[in-house]
Lab assay of single mutants.
Amino acid sequence: NQESVVAAVLIPINTALTVGMMTTRVVSPTGIPAEDIPRLISMQVNQVVPMGTTLMPDMVKGYAP
């Protein structure tokens, strides 16, 4: 099972992602793959992401799977 990126904290809208904001977990449905965390650093979320929420591609500005 592939791990997906999950919010480790509440991430406010338009916040640039940092390593500490993200964790990984096997979830269903799957979100952004864990191995993409290095690509996500400094990208901004386009909505509020509650802690424990799986990051989906459409939540991150400029992210393309």
Rank of each mutant, 00 (worst) to 15 (best):
V6R: 02
L10N: 06
L10R: 07
M56A: 05
Q44K: 08
M21L: 07
P38A: 11
E3R: 04
V19F: 13
M59F: 10
T23F: 13
E3K: 04
S4K: 02
E35F: 06
A7G: 04
I32Y: 03
I32W: 02
P12W: 09
V45G: 00
G62C: 07
T30M: 14
I13P: 12
Q44G: 05
Y63I: 09
P38Y: 07
R25Q: 12
L10T: 13
V5S: 02
A16C: 15
S28L: 07
G31F: 02
A7R: 00
I41E: 14
S4Q: 02
V9K: 14
V9C: 03
L55E: 01
A7P: 00
T30R: 06
M59T: 04
P38V: 06
I32G: 00
V19E: 15
M22K: 01
V19N: 13
R25I: 03
V49K: 00
V26C: 07
N14I: 02
L40F: 02
E35W: 07
M56I: 09
N1M: 04
L10V: 08
T30E: 14
V27H: 04
S4D: 00
V27F: 03
S4G: 03
L55V: 14
A34Y: 05
P38H: 11
A8E: 05
L40A: 01
Q47H: 13
M59S: 03
N1R: 02
A7L: 02
A8K: 10
M56K: 09
V27C: 04
T24N: 10
S4V: 02
V49W: 01
Y63N: 03
I32V: 05
N1P: 15
V60N: 00
I13C: 05
V27P: 01
A7I: 02
M22D: 01
N46Q: 11
T15C: 03
M21E: 02
M21W: 03
D36C: 05
T18C: 05
Q2H: 08
D36I: 08
M51N: 09
E3V: 05
V5F: 01
P38M: 14
I37P: 00
V60L: 12
V26N: 14
A34F: 04
V60S: 01
G52R: 05
L17I: 05
M22T: 03
V9H: 13
G52M: 04
A64M: 12
I37V: 10
V6N: 02
T15E: 13
S28M: 13
A8L: 13
T53Y: 12
L40H: 00
P65T: 08
T23E: 09
T30F: 08
P12K: 09
S28F: 15
A34G: 09
I41Q: 14
V48N: 15
R39P: 02
R25G: 15
Q47K: 15
A16H: 14
P38Q: 15
M21V: 04
V45I: 12
M43E: 05
R25V: 05
Q2E: 14
Y63C: 03
A64T: 11
M21H: 13
P65H: 11
V9M: 12
M43A: 14
V27D: 14
V19M: 15
N1E: 12
V26Q: 12
V19Q: 09
E3C: 06
T18D: 15
Q2L: 13
T23L: 10
N1C: 07
D58L: 10
L40Q: 00
Q47S: 13
A34T: 07
V6C: 04
G31P: 00
G31W: 02
M22F: 10
V19T: 09
M51C: 05
P29C: 04
A8V: 08
V26A: 13
M51D: 09
V48I: 14
D58A: 12
S4E: 00
Q44H: 13
V49E: 00
V27I: 11
V6I: 13
L10Y: 08
I32M: 03
T53Q: 08
A7Q: 01
V45D: 00
N14M: 10
T24R: 11
Q2T: 11
R39E: 03
A34P: 13
Q44S: 11
T18N: 10
V60K: 01
A34K: 14
V27L: 05
E3Y: 12
M51R: 15
T18K: 07
A16N: 09
P33G: 06
I32Q: 00
P57Q: 07
T23N: 14
I13A: 11
S4N: 02
E35R: 05
L55M: 13
A8Y: 09
T53I: 06
V27S: 13
D36Y: 09
T30W: 13
Q47N: 11
V5Y: 01
V27Y: 03
T18W: 06
Q44T: 15
P50F: 06
P12Q: 10
A34V: 12
D36M: 15
V45F: 01
D58T: 15
P65C: 08
P65E: 12
V9I: 08
L10M: 14
Q44A: 15
Q47W: 05
V26M: 11
L17N: 00
S4P: 00
Y63P: 04
K61Q: 11
V48C: 05
Q44C: 04
P65Q: 10
G52C: 11
T53W: 09
P29A: 08
R39Y: 13
T23D: 06
M56W: 04
A16R: 11
A7F: 02
A34I: 05
T53V: 11
G20K: 11
P57S: 15
P57H: 08
T15I: 07
V60G: 00
T54P: 07
V19G: 11
T53N: 15
L55Y: 01
S28W: 03
